[in-house]
C-alpha cells in the first residue's frame, strides 16, 4: 500500500449452505468488496464456539463476522437461532475484554444474496476501519 491507511483484518465464519454460497455468488457476479475479509468455512453458524470469536478478537483480529442462513432457512433446522442466542453472551464477554462490541457482527445472508454479501462486507470493513486497529493488535 502506498499510503499508511489502516487496513483492518476481519475474520468471517460463513456457513456452508447459505452465506458461504452467498460469498461465492458475489464472486461469480464479480461484485467488488474490500480485500480485508478472511473466510473460515463452517457447516453452520451454530457451530461457531464463542471462544473462537473471543480468541480471534483478543489475538489481534480487528473484526469478526458470523454469517448464517436467514432465520427459518437453516440447513440444520435452527442452528442459526442458537448462534443468535449466543450473540449477547459474546458481546458481554467482549465488553470484559475491552473490545468494542461493534467489532463483532452476526448477519444472515442467503445463497442468492451475493449483492448483500458484498454490501455487508463493505459496511463491516468501513465500520471497523472507523473504529481503528484492535486494542489487541500486536
Amino acid at each position: 500500500m502506498a499510503n499508511e491507511e489502516f487496513e483492518p483484518l476481519i475474520i468471517g465464519f460463513c456457513c456452508n449452505w447459505c452465506s458461504y454460497a452467498g460469498a461465492d455468488l458475489a464472486g461469480v457476479s464479480r461484485l467488488q468488496y474490500p480485500p480485508n475479509l478472511r473466510i473460515v468455512r463452517v457447516m453452520c453458524s451454530g457451530m461457531v464456539h464463542p471462544n473462537l470469536v473471543i480468541d480471534a478478537l483478543t489475538k489481534g483480529a480487528d473484526g469478526v463476522i458470523i454469517c448464517g442462513c436467514h432465520l427459518g432457512d437453516c440447513h440444520y433446522l435452527d442452528g442459526n437461532v442458537k448462534a443468535e442466542n449466543r450473540k449477547e453472551a459474546i458481546e458481554l464477554m467482549l465488553e470484559d475484554f475491552g473490545v468494542e462490541p461493534e467489532r463483532f457482527r452476526l448477519e444472515w445472508i442467503s445463497a442468492s444474496e451475493g449483492p448483500r454479501f458484498a454490501k455487508v462486507i463493505r459496511e463491516m470493513t468501513e465500520s471497523v476501519r472507523a473504529l481503528g486497529p484492535s486494542p489487541y493488535r500486536a
Binding site: G46, K82, R86
Partner: peptide, 9 residues
Amino acid sequence: KGCGVCQAT
C-alpha cells in the same frame, strides 16, 4: 448430521 451446535455449546 454434523451441524456442530453441540461443539459450540
